[in-house]
Design a protein around this nucleic acid. Structure first.
Lengths: 156, 156
DNA sequence: TTTGAAACTGATAATGT
DNA sequence: ACATTATCAGTTTCAAA
């Protein structure tokens, strides 16, 4: 992969701030024409620097107002158990982020739900039913100072 | 704000999966013409359901391979101290997510840096220099199972 | 690698059902 | 609230510097 120069980095900044910014406007801001912008963006896409373009949605306007961080500890730690948990958790739409971490617990989950009722249902009927769950400690998000994560959408 | 119907929700799903999907393709998938798609998207934007469109970038290809979750406890908890910390942390580009939480600590930070050297510098010369920091406990991300967060880009 | 221009495609607005 | 049509703006491609 070719190293990224400053023009690439600025293009990435612009597209991260607004994925719909036109090649024309990017070109104008960088004192170039649209062709090099277009070619660089295509290159950044094909090299995987740009993974995708997404719409950032408002959680609460989609009825998902409760964010909970869950520290999960497994009972068994053999590789196969870790992998099974990772597979299982990927299938839960409420889990919008999941990290395998060092330290006290094994995983940190970011869970997005409508309200406390839905969270109770998630814990009792979804998370706790996974095999190999040892301990799950919930911490509720009081205020989101910085964050931009996808929102799960269930079409009825 | 008008309630969202299933067509709205599907449009949101499509745009979350790919912000560059054309009105034409969305229309085809929903058996409609481009006009209602266009009008609905404009409405969703103006109502703030769609907050922005962004490019998802590959962290490691941008030289940010180390993700650390930091539990921060403050010394003083009066409202003014909390607000000051929130203001301060917004100015740190390494902090890509920040939550005020219930439970053991006061804040959880997601920090994105190049490597351990850069992390040491962040802790010693940036986080620890903020006033009112009581305790900061780091947990390193071993594996990211799910996540899509913006990457800070510094143009040289 | 970039420019400039030409061909193509999608976004947008007006009109009608 | 949606379909059709017409116009406009952006993307995309290519010859040439």
């Amino acid at each position: 992969m070719a190293a990224l120069d400053n023009i690439d980095l600025k293009i990435l900044q612009f597209l991260q701030a607004n994925a719909l910014m036109t090649n024309k406007e990017i070109a104008a801001r960088l004192n170039l024409t649209t062709t090099p912008i277009h070619e660089r963006i295509k290159r950044l896409e094909s090299e995987g620097v740009i993974e995708k373009y997404t719409a950032i949605l408002n959680k609460s306007k989609l009825g998902k107002s409760l964010v909970v961080l869950v520290d999960v500890t497994l009972k068994e730690h053999a590789a196969s158990f870790l992998e099974q948990f990772e597979k299982d958790v990927l299938l839960l739409p409420e889990v919008v982020e999941c990290y395998c971490i060092s330290g006290g617990s094994d995983f940190l989950l970011k869970v997005l739900v409508r309200d406390m009722d839905e969270y109770r249902h998630f814990i009792l009927h979804k998370l706790a039913t996974l095999s190999n769950i040892g301990n799950a400690q919930s911490r509720f998000v009081v205020n989101e100072i910085k964050s931009q994560t996808p929102v799960p959408i269930e079409v009825i």
